[in-house]
Nucleic acid binder design. Structure first.
Lengths: 195, 195
DNA sequence: GTCTATATCACGATAGAC
DNA sequence: GTCTATCGTGATATAGAC
């Protein structure tokens, strides 16, 4: 792995752990085992390196989500697979967390990937819900866009609750909660609804 | 308003806007129109002042939530009132955002109020859901804790999506989405379920 | 490409006068 | 209580040698 590559990976890890305001070029360099000269040769500065790091992370996140949401099974199966996939819950979402970073939000080049990523994700989930409705798996009263937003929000909020609690428990509860609510909107095999 | 008070209010605003790592004592002093000597007279340092600010914000948040959740109406009415109350959506949650701050998370005195606040909020919402079930307003299949976690998570995640999008739209969609899902779990007047 | 030296400024806090 | 002076450290970057 060359220096440029190491710098991007180092920046990705630190942006995830500490955000943009909380990360200094020096720290990035040390973790990458690269000198200052090296970093400023490959990148115009902190912002430029951060942009490369964020774009790569966003790309990976999108690919991982797409793989599960395009998988086999019913709409609910796929949403469940996506929500329940293995996650580093206590570390939070590497993209969602940047949404709270003041310097990221005022820098268009850094903010753009966040907007694109969540825009894409909400649209992708809405499409899955719409498919479910079209196939007769989900009730037609479900608003795909609103349902998709609620699902993504539960995920992002689940991270917040887990970090606040210091445990993954509230994350798992939130995911279980929304899936239970969604499950009742299933058309055919409404499992054990009490009555 | 005396200097001490101005410092706490200044810190509250800046912690909301920029987080703990993104806020310097100097900035707090300038906004409070107070000198360094003044700040270090009233507080032991940045951390001490931040703790006072966070605790006050957490207290207000809790009071506001309790007022709505203890109000009149059915369980769904109260949850709806809470979720739909006026909010500065694009500014995000002043407590939830601190969950992404690396220095807050490793400082017990600063982290504790977050844990307490969300712990209380989840329990309070779970109690409302439980009441709804007991009163026959909500289906007994609903798990109060899981449902409560999903509701709070939707709120916190809604902020994330709104900030990423630069619009309040996804927040409103997420809230509408979860309320629609929850509405179908209403016992009596199941409105227009299609079939 | 990578290194070291240097520059400028901000951070977070302390000291002691008033 | 509030002020100014000062301290040591780190942030972010540039310059120029190798």
């Amino acid at each position: 792995m060359n220096a440029r590559e190491r710098l991007v990976e180092s920046a990705r890890a630190l942006l995830w752990e500490r955000g943009y305001v909380g990360t200094s070029p020096k720290t990035i360099q040390q973790r990458a085992d690269a000198g200052q000269g090296s970093m400023y040769h490959h990148f115009a500065g902190k912002e430029d390196l951060a942009e490369a790091a964020i774009r790569r992370t966003a790309g990976e996140l999108r690919a991982a989500a797409d793989a599960l949401l395009s998988g086999p099974g019913t709409a609910i199966d796929r949403v469940t697979a996506y929500l329940r996939r293995e996650r580093d819950v206590l570390r939070g979402c590497p993209i969602g967390r940047l949404t709270q970073d003041p310097d990221v939000m005022v820098t268009p080049a850094l903010r753009a990937p966040l907007e694109e990523t969540f825009g894409w994700l909400r649209a992708r989930l809405a499409a899955v819900v719409r498919e479910g409705v079209d196939r007769g798996e989900l009730r037609p009263t479900l608003d795909p866009a609103a349902t998709a937003a609620a699902i993504v929000a539960t995920l992002q909020g689940g991270y917040v609750l887990a970090r606040a609690a210091g445990t993954t428990e509230p994350f798992d509860q939130a995911v279980g909660g929304i899936l239970a609510l969604l499950g009742a909107h299933t058309v055919r095999p409404r499992p054990k609804e009490g009555h």
